[in-house]
Design a protein around this nucleic acid. Structure first.
Lengths: 185, 185
DNA sequence: GTCGACATGTAAATTGTTACATGATTTA
DNA sequence: TAAATCATGTAACAATTTACATGTCGAC
């Protein structure tokens, strides 16, 4: 069977795509975002960002062009790039994302702003909440069954996971209400 | 100047070191820990774990040997390995760790159990709490100053950070009390 | 006796880190 | 005008991903 040679898109690629979809940026601007903001754990090193931009440019997902009212060349999404981003945002939330990629889920949510409808955002949050509930129940079950046998430090570290995921769950409920009551322009 | 050729220890290396310090494991056992437990985001792929074990073996930090009462060869820490682990655990908590490496800090805390004294654990937690406080204040300041101008989704995602770090702060206070009141054997 | 879990590894390709290099532009 | 920041890159190296490969052992 022929190998489909669609180059894979890394999570750094998606993060860049999401950033420049909000606002066109230079490579340097992207690096600064990763370096100085709480956007997640993406590499801001030139050796990671510039090659990533090359990948995205070659795949036709971004272009570097002169913006109106500015005499600086900046990267922005092509329609194909926007589409790719959208597909990524619409991927179903899986329990594994909850356990291993929570930051990415939050970044996705932040990027949804102008790209998805209110209904799609709510679907995402509800699915997020469901998976969170399942995961939290797993954690709690483990805690009650095995908690007593675990050394103190490890148990406390585990409980940190519990309180954080509980906080995330509460956040999720609140976010659903906020989005639901928000006027769609 | 001569380059000191001390091979660098990756965070995967430290995670492995901490795991087998608690209990000797086979390479496969280590992989399963990373795969199935909420221990953090370490690669469980054989292409990551086995080379890491080779590195650690070459550096004299771990050995594979027959355990008493078991006829299986498992990896465990050498005294040098234990020492390296201890030094890692004793590194001061920096604000950057809070922002970008929270999971690693919690893993460190879990690994401290039999390796550090009560006093050292409390120092770690107090320092953790201090840095958390500083970071939280930064986040809150940003939120009150810029919060209104940020698109809804991004603002909510930011607020998720706030609630999680607040929960971590509370956890930290509780952990200090728990450790403080715990009888040292 | 076969299926799944245990167990260890390797090879190729990709990705990321670290460090260097260069030059423009802004600001004090 | 010197320093800091903006801006883009490369080269060498290290690490990880993905996929393959092999074999043992216990359970059903």
């Amino acid at each position: 069977m022929k190998k489909t040679n669609v180059p894979k898109i890394t999570s750094l690629d998606y993060a860049i795509l999401g950033l420049i979809n909000q606002e066109p940026l230079t490579g340097y601007g992207i690096r600064k975002q990763f370096e100085t903001t709480a956007i997640g754990n993406y590499s801001s090193s030139p050796g990671a960002v510039y090659p990533a931009l090359d990948r995205l440019k070659k795949s036709g997902l971004v272009i570097k062009s002169l913006l109106k009212n500015q005499n600086k060349e900046k990267f922005s999404c092509t329609p194909k790039g926007k589409d790719t981003l959208k597909k990524w945002l619409l991927q179903p939330v899986e329990i594994n994302d909850i356990a291993k990629n929570l930051d990415e889920l939050l970044l996705k949510f932040a990027f949804m702003d102008k790209l998805l409808t209110k209904g799609q955002k709510l679907d995402f949050l509800k699915s997020f909440q469901n998976q969170l509930k399942i995961y939290l129940e797993e954690l709690k079950a483990f805690h009650t069954q095995e908690g007593a046998g675990i050394p103190l430090n490890a148990r406390l570290a585990f409980e940190h996971g519990l309180v954080c995921y509980s906080a995330t769950y509460k956040w999720c409920k609140n976010a659903i209400n906020t989005i639901r009551n928000h006027q769609e322009k």
